[in-house]
Design a protein around this nucleic acid. Structure first.
Lengths: 219, 219
DNA sequence: TCAAAAATACCACAATCGTGCGATTGTGCC
DNA sequence: GGCACAATCGCACGATTGTGGTATTTTTGA
């Protein structure tokens, strides 16, 4: 508790990038920015991971997506295993949405085009530290599209409330008898409801109902 | 082909917003921006939808998410039905991610906080016209999180290739006999395989296997 | 108020399923 | 050679399912 006289601690960043020229540029850019400090710059994930064994993890890692050796995607996973609280921003030359998308799924918090303006770099870092995910409109669209695709408008088979209820029990794997007991109705009634569900969904086996229910998000 | 002397056509926008003060501010902001033109401003979705019947649709609609009458979400759906090529940007007072998320799923191309800077507004419009989706880091995180949730790491139950194959047939609703015929093996063999699958997945009904297969993305 | 829709209940029977056994063959591995 | 494992095949039997009916009561909507 001696010499905390100047300011609050800087945000610490690490840089993993094999292009020495770009590495230098980025390194300087960060260290010249108020409140940020680029502690280390590495040429490969392997080196950075090695360093993590005996150094405090940074708050943010800027990680080239196209590294030799362990590539960025694998890198994200490894880093996140070791220090899950560290935010990782991918660096890419081009707007390759597939790769970026994979990186996000692997745990990255955003990505930056390498030719981004210094302001944009700093803005991204701030965004991820605030808990956000930093991406551009193009990637955002990819993700929203994919999301919509995974959430197709659910088909309407005009199931009644009771039928939906029973469908949900079928999906959990209950037998007719178990459903009857659960709803305090007769086995025969459940039988009838199931017959009606089968007819409405155009299926004729348990397996058919359940697949259809999952595929079309009926449950 | 007569008087195309001045410039390329302006980007046409419509504004749907019931707060008259904000409506005026935004209207002026847009019309003062080079290359943009706010053709109409409406107080409600109903009015704008009415106008669409006899006016050319705009390239972009700025749509308040919290309108009286038909709200923004329903509005997006209606607009998109009538003029799917029109990009819609939602206007929100607060960063309400659930609503914004619904809007995006309903077809919106982005959203703007109402206190965004004029530059941010124009930037968003440009982004959506370029085919992107405009959102901030906070919403982006929500969506990426949701996406990850939909793609959980698949459990490994050490199913053999044959078992996986049979599992996939089970999911499509085939009976033991049908599977046997399809694979040119005996009914009894299929029976055995299914028994083993049940044991490995810790289930004991057809329904159980299929739900588990879907929930854990085994197929 | 009256008809339609939904929920309830019952019966019977063939088909299919789940599960208890046991057994042979081929393959890879130490 | 011996061991583990996957794939194959077999039998038996009780449990459950799917399907063909019919029929009553309650709820809903026009």
């Amino acid at each position: 508790m001696s010499d905390q006289i100047n300011t609050v601690a800087n945000i610490s960043l690490w840089l993993v990038e094999d292009n020495r020229h770009f590495q230098q540029t980025m390194f300087s850019l960060i260290n010249e920015s108020d409140g940020f400090e680029c502690a280390f710059a590495f040429d490969s994930c392997e080196e950075a991971l090695e360093k993590l064994k005996n150094a405090a993890p940074p708050e943010v890692i800027l990680l080239d997506i196209g590294l030799k050796g362990m590539n960025g995607i694998e890198g994200v996973k490894k880093f996140k295993e070791i220090t899950p609280a560290t935010h990782i921003i991918m660096l890419t030359i081009q707007d390759d949405s597939n790769t970026v998308f994979e990186a996000l799924c692997a745990g990255a918090s955003g990505y930056l085009l390498k030719d981004s303006s210094p302001e944009r770099v700093i803005e991204s870092v701030k965004e991820v530290i605030a808990g956000g995910v930093s991406m551009n409109a193009h990637i955002a669209k990819k993700i929203v599209d994919m999301f919509k695709q995974l959430n197709p408008p659910k088909g309407n088979y005009r199931l009644t409330e009771r039928e939906k209820e029973i469908l949900s029990f079928l999906v959990t794997g209950l037998s007719k008898k178990q459903i009857a007991d659960k709803l305090f109705i007769s086995f025969h009634t459940v039988n009838t409801h199931i017959k009606n569900i089968y007819e409405k969904l155009h299926v004729n086996t348990r397996a058919g109902v359940i697949s259809k229910a999952f595929k079309e998000k009926l449950v």
